[in-house]
Design a binder for these strands. Structure first.
Lengths: 234, 234
DNA sequence: TTCGTGAGACGAACGCCGTTCGTGACACGA
DNA sequence: TCGTGTCACGAACGGCGTTCGTCTCACGAA
């Protein structure tokens, strides 16, 4: 990150503050994502991001109008990292599944960003638009009507976002050791002590909650959705 | 809400502050839900709730340990309002669909509560437990294995929560007139001006975003999910 | 070379927020 | 009558998003 080479004297001479970086929107988003990856989403405050750039919070507002806008920029960047396939109509189902899995993975990699994505009402970022276009193309290639493709795109996207939110929130909460672990143990004890006549199924199922990775459960629902969408094709 | 009947004098005599109400957890949750219904979720602050009870924020902490706990209590209350059916194995699919629709309706009635429900990692409230039990019973009645029932319950519940969150957030944002309306118009103009060769499907579909009620789209995905789950039955 | 100008960095402050602490009022059993 | 413990609450702390006004400084015109 840092440039340790000795600078030519004519460059050092007239610069009081040694490494004055110009501070762009891109740089701000970079720093915000770094903070997110290391300290979680609620650490991404204007003050914390500014501190990561060795400046004050007021300096950010020249490049970003809001904390909300910063969050949207972060989300767009994260979802922009995933590679988009060339649409192959014969393989639309597999391609769509891969694409959605990649979305899931990208969202989970930055724990907490999924909540931000869910809060974005209108996906107007450039990367989000491209992503939506490809998903629509895949569904159309699968033989769905325009209407079904639109609805299906919506439903499937929401499923991925929601699962990523829950999954990463749980992971983020689990990483913070004492609180969540204690609650999980409490719940286990609570469920084990539950009156079995009143909650037979809950008791029967309760060990499955801790078992089964998030990815497994994610794919279970995803397959169901894709099957259902394929059945709507004409 | 208020009791305007004149009180017997012996009740009035030794009470300096005229209507000193004892301030219980239930009362706090009531007030919080009233604030939520009228002013949205982000108005539900400790200070605002306390103000609604004519007291200071510190007074709440005797009955509620956290803002987070308050939120969970609110969520449990809202989801507890929905009536649970007697499980009829022959009608499991219709019963499940009705139950999920009722969940959706309850979550949308208090705009913003869906986000809270999503953030609850472990549904340990009494009403949430009862709800889960019935959903599991319905899926088991539909012939699913324990494992599939557990996963299906998870998936379906998440779908409802996510859809309610998006839907109510949009509705909440729409009620606040100027900002969201402006963005929607901006997006319409933006999409209309989109290069059609690069985003053919997005352009073709863009009017469907504003059309089609949330409920319609909700049921579209719900039917797909239920079909898929029914197909897993043995 | 000098000077005006405009964009950007930033210190300080405002009004919120969640939460804690210490005090004080008050009902109740001894 | 007198502890005593519960609960309401005023005051305060630290942190947040955001705004305002000032100051620096590169750059083009004269």
């Amino acid at each position: 990150m840092e440039d340790n080479q000795p600078r030519p004297p004519w460059q050092r001479s007239n610069q009081r503050k040694p490494a004055r970086v110009p501070l762009t929107q891109e740089l701000i988003v970079d720093t915000a994502l770094a903070v997110l990856a290391e300290e979680g989403i609620e650490a991404v405050t204007m003050r914390r991001v500014a501190q990561g750039l060795d400046t004050g919070p007021a300096s950010l507002y020249a490049h970003v109008s809001n904390k909300e806008e910063l969050h949207e920029l972060m989300a767009d960047r994260v979802l922009g990292e995933i590679p988009l396939p060339e649409v192959d109509p014969a393989a639309w189902r597999a391609q769509l599944k891969d694409l959605l899995s990649a979305q899931f993975a990208a969202l989970v990699r930055y724990p907490g960003i999924a909540r931000v994505v869910m809060a974005i009402m209108i996906p107007a970022g450039p990367n989000l638009l491209r992503l939506g276009e490809v998903m629509l193309a895949l569904l159309r290639a699968g033989g769905l009507s325009v209407r079904h493709a639109a609805f299906g795109c919506d439903v499937v996207g929401m499923y991925v976002k929601a699962f990523a939110q829950e999954s990463s929130e749980w992971r983020g909460g689990l990483a913070d050791r004492p609180e969540t672990k204690r609650r999980a143990e409490e719940l286990n004890a609570y469920l084990a002590a539950l009156p079995e006549h009143a909650f037979p199924h809950t008791v029967a199922v309760h060990e499955l909650f801790n078992e089964g990775t998030a990815r497994e459960r994610f794919e279970f629902g995803l397959d169901i959705l894709l099957d259902g969408l394929a059945a709507k094709a004409e």
